[in-house]
Write a protein that binds this DNA or RNA. Structure first.
Lengths: 176, 176
DNA sequence: ACAACCATGTAAGTAGTTACATGATTTA
DNA sequence: TAAATCATGTAACTACTTACATGGTTGT
């Protein structure tokens, strides 16, 4: 439900085209709000209809690019939204459902699936640590960078948590 | 997308009515797959149509209860599903979007919202620790209880992670 | 010429949310 | 007798996913 505000935030940081945004959502931005390019294009259209952002068609490179930028009303909307009450995202983790079913139904060859997930989270962790080293090497900068670093730390902690959880599960179910 | 399998797992553990399941999903089960009663009733209907579960209408207490139980085909379907490839749930955390916007737009009275979220996660953590103390006091039981404990530990770690993250954010933005 | 990529979309389907409806039974 | 709780649903809506469409440009 906060896709529009995620996009406004991204555009506030830097103007860009739909594809630019899709790429940012695939990388760093997508850690806290993932979205596909279809969602992004549709939502950019809505935000422009509402007068919160503005596009400029640029006949650059290949095809035609539409560079979006934040307008003052979009700025205001974002400021209004930020301090609103916030509910935790409903938790839905299919891997934990699988583990619970495995607990109830006995050995079911779940180990390969767990190992694949483990590999994914190890790679995520490595990527986040790389970003931390590259972008936040120098300790405490501004309030802004401190907050950005905190968000990254949150992601690092999350990935580390998954790794511990999955290693623990593999230790219990063994190699089936 | 795994609501049907979450329900099959819950019914595999113990038969029950729609309301029973809704209550279980509000408590322990909901930690790894949350669902509202509307979703649950609809999905139970579908699962019965597919012949995976069976209901027996019991004229008990108030109203009429429909007790569902897992049928052999439901059992088989669950066994088939457990070891399938599993993708991480797309990450969507509006509070992190708010923090990122706060980083970009300067002080915006976000502290009260952060404190409310912090309180939620402290209560969740306390509840999980209570369950751990109550249900998993004795160390290593069966494989089954070891897995259930692991899932709980995963939840404890997640809540502890949020608490650290939110305390860190409050330390940076102060009391606005 | 053809593959790979840039760039923006449409269409159809599934999953989840929000609001409301219904009726019975216990408790105050 | 009114409120709270048990118990099961329907209807309408929004968000997200999956598959496909289109057309231009660069590199081989």
């Amino acid at each position: 439900m906060s896709l529009p505000h995620a996009l406004l935030t991204a555009l506030c940081e830097k103007a860009g085209s739909g594809l630019d945004l899709a790429r940012r959502f695939d990388k760093s931005f997508g850690f806290f709000w993932s979205a596909t390019h279809q969602q992004i294009y549709r939502e950019l259209g809505r935000l422009e209809d509402q007068g919160l952002i503005q596009s400029e068609t640029v006949p650059s490179a290949r095809g035609q690019k539409k560079i979006y930028q934040l307008l003052p009303p979009g700025y205001d909307e974002l400021k209004r939204w930020v301090p609103l009450e916030d509910e935790p995202t409903p938790y839905r983790e299919s891997i934990l459902v699988r583990l619970r079913a495995e607990a109830a139904l006995g050995p079911l060859e779940l180990a390969p699936t767990l190992r694949r997930r483990l590999e994914v989270h190890r790679q995520n962790l490595a990527a986040y640590l790389e970003i931390e080293k590259r972008d936040f090497a120098t300790s405490n900068g501004t309030r802004r960078t401190a907050l950005q670093k905190l968000i990254l730390t949150c992601g690092i902690r999350s990935e580390a948590g998954w790794i511990e959880c999955l290693e623990g599960a593999l230790a219990i179910i063994g190699d089936d």
